[in-house]
Amino acid sequence: MSQKQELLKINNLKQYFPIKGGVLGRTVNHVKAVDDISFNIYEGETVSLVGESGCGKSTTGRAILRLDDPTDGTVEFDGQDLLSMSKKEMRDMRKDLQIIFQDPYASLNPRMTVRQTLNEAMEIQKVVPQDERNDKIAELMETVGLQPHQVDRFPHEFSGGQRQRIGIARALSVNPKLIVCDEAVSALDVSIQAQVLNLLKKFQNEMNLTYLFIAHDLGVVRHISDRIIVMYLGKIVEMGDTKSIFENPQHPYTKALLSAIPVPDPEKKTDRIFLQGDVPSPMDPPKGCRFHTRCPFATEKCAEETPELRNEDYMEGGHVAACHYMKDIEAGVHQPTKDTTTVRG
């Protein structure tokens, strides 16, 4: 890990969205969508941001690309601070930073053929000389598994999976270093999803691409990621390599999340942790540990003190979690304070 080059470095990132109210439309409150998170991404790896709706994972992705301007914090990419860049500098930077969205249809201009779409992307970033562009387009089409004769078709003439391939081709056309995949395969049927996932893995190996994967499907996440960041209500609750997170989760939220995934094997019986109630509003997040209102292990301390991300000696690699009791829970010393565990089967 140590000899790897840091590509993206995020420090104390905050993204608050103001809520206007009252007769005068003053800011009466904030949605703390992302509240003070820090993490790094190394060159050539895939990091996944996981969590449920409202945890801030998509907001983080957008903030990194400055699709929204973050409230506070720094985002360093390749040693340069993105947040202090001017609009023009940022535009040049977008060549290295691409995004693939969930809905490929909504993100493609319906009036432009595939060729025009790809041409435009290369034109804006000036990465490929004009006379070489047609060759590059043909190459891209082949790479993402589309037929060369389809290049002059419009987005509506393609299926969902094919459109996602066009989205990938567009992202790849400017030779980026980092691609943010915001639920990029979520809308696809499994048979097509597998095709796209394999494609993404192939490009990573061939071009040393770095991915920031934002996804709610933990099967996809386990398959594609080197490292995983688990978010809950705008904060990181646990972070570590894929194996550690899936096989040795420490935070009670991560445990509950993983146990909730339905396993496609009727013979497997596992303990399932049922969480009570819904995620609280990010407008008024709970004090202390944000998970304490739903946590089976919560005590008074959890309601008062915010736990920091930390490593215990039995946790491997860069594995960290933010729970006051993770060591005691691991050792069986700290027992659930609420009854929420049920055996599945």
């Binding site: 299926s159 999976g161 094919q162 499994v190 048979s191 097509i192 999803q193 597998a194 095709q195 996932l197 394999n198 499907d217 933990l218 099967g219 996809v220 996440v221 386990r222 398959h223 594609i224 194996k243 899936f246 993983l258 995934i261 396993v263 496609p264 094997d265 497997k268």
Partner: peptide, 18 residues
């Protein structure tokens, strides 16, 4: 084709075509 959360897989075997 299914990426599994309960096991490690090297490669998915998608169904070809659409």
């Amino acid at each position: 084709s299914l990426p599994r959360s309960d096991m490690d897989q090297e490669e998915l075997e998608p169904i070809r075509g659409t």
